[in-house]
Design a protein around this nucleic acid. Structure first.
Lengths: 243, 243
DNA sequence: ATCCTCTAATCCTCTAGAGGAGTGGAGGGG
DNA sequence: CCCCTCCACTCCTCTAGAGGATTAGAGGAT
């Protein structure tokens, strides 16, 4: 196979090659976990030197898009958002082992975006799928979440049985809807419960809460999901490394 | 000048070169902001190919140790912890512009490490310099901090006049004591004020607080400083990008 | 069935060098 | 004095290729 590097001729070749490879991943030609052609093959395909291919591939490794392993090959990285959110709460049992929380969909509906339009970067009259979800450990609710996604991108989720959602949403987005979350931005603050949140959490309106707002972005940089999570502040515990 | 790459012969040359360069920075031969020799010069000094030097230098750029600029040279990066902590609080005035908070030393004393020994990675009977510090905006206290450092590494600070500390400690550490903070780990949680904290913040004991514990590390990976900051929870507001 | 050796494929390390592009200062013209 | 051109120096891009390390699988020996 032979491929031409289009794009802006003023950009360096390795940059255009990076863009070309990301594009092929974005359109789904290669999916998470897939093996890319060998670097020698890519060099031949794109008619560039091996060193240039390596520079592009190493750049994509640095960007978190690819993984390379000597003797095996170059793979599309599987984004691991597993339980990133739960770094924020103490989820160890009495023995000190980490506990995987369970998820349950409490409510689900579709409505116009309205006030959520700017957060999801869609039109105000576009349909939005809302999920109201609780997360429990040993049947004790520790977090409730309001989740909003553009309905047209997540059509399969509207009809999916509530008990088929599983504990993690991002693998579901990936498998059922072809939408891969690669980046997210979170804002943390402290506040108080609304009656609805208090009921779901089994606490009072005056209980202090940690509130986490998350915007999740897809491979193309667009917003995939917006969610707001509420949990008891006294269980909040978050560690981060700076620089 | 000609230099030999000692270290474990089994490691790749570029890795040993990285180690050698970091070592020369650690011992103070090059300080923050200093210009390194040109890559051609380094290649001649260490008797390796230019590409190998570049791989080492690019690695150190990735590690945040160096900065390179085409046409200028390679420089030791100036760590910019400026007001990293203040990402955690809303510090914009009514007009929306960012406000630089002022710092004031409220108290200072030296005592044996005791319970702080493990946090500072020093002996229990080693001397620790304690600082009790407030940070204000428009004379309103928004944060108080308990700071602890190993006294023997920060001798100049024991006698320094309290009004000579300035608003930022890390540049002071660097300039007065030759200790450079390059990395930090923070843990955020929710709690309530002790009487002493409440007095300093001008609030009551029951006021909800955001508590930030920070351990700051030096170039050699050792602990330089441990601090705990307290601020009103209702002003807490923190944004982070994930992966 | 298990273990071993061999082999092909892959990425990693390292070398060598040509040409390009950005920076900053020296020197000259106005 | 100011502006411009030129130039030395720097890092950046790209090429070309040799040899090594690691992996996974095929095939044979036990």
């Amino acid at each position: 196979m032979s491929v031409a590097l289009a794009a802006d001729q003023r950009l360096p070749i390795y940059q255009r090659l990076k863009d070309a490879l990301v594009e092929r991943i974005t359109v789904g030609e290669w999916r998470a976990g897939d093996l890319l052609p060998a670097e020698t093959q890519l060099a031949a395909d794109y008619q560039v030197a091996l060193g240039t291919v390596r520079k592009a591939l190493e750049g994509l490794v640095g960007d978190g898009v690819l993984e390379r392993q000597q003797g095996r090959g170059t793979y599309v990285r599987r984004p691991d958002f597993g339980n990133a959110l739960f770094r924020f709460f103490r989820l160890t049992d009495a023995a000190g082992t980490v506990v995987q929380p369970q998820a349950r969909i409490l409510d689900r509906w579709v409505a116009p975006a309205a006030g959520l339009a700017p957060r999801l970067e869609i039109a105000a009259d576009a349909a939005v799928l809302h999920l109201f979800r609780e997360r429990t450990v040993n049947a004790v609710p520790i977090l409730v979440e309001e989740i909003a996604v553009a309905a047209d991108r997540f059509l399969p989720l509207i009809e999916l049985p509530a008990d088929a959602f599983g504990d993690l949403l991002y693998p579901l987005y990936d498998q059922r809807c072809g939408q891969t979350v690669v980046r997210a931005r979170e804002t943390i603050r402290f506040g108080h419960a609304t009656p609805r949140i208090a009921t779901a959490l089994g606490c009072t309106d005056s209980t202090p809460l940690a509130i986490i707002e998350r915007t999740a972005f897809g491979r193309d940089g667009g917003v995939l999901e917006w969610r707001r999570s509420f949990g008891p502040a006294d269980q909040f515990n978050y560690t981060i490394d700076l620089k």
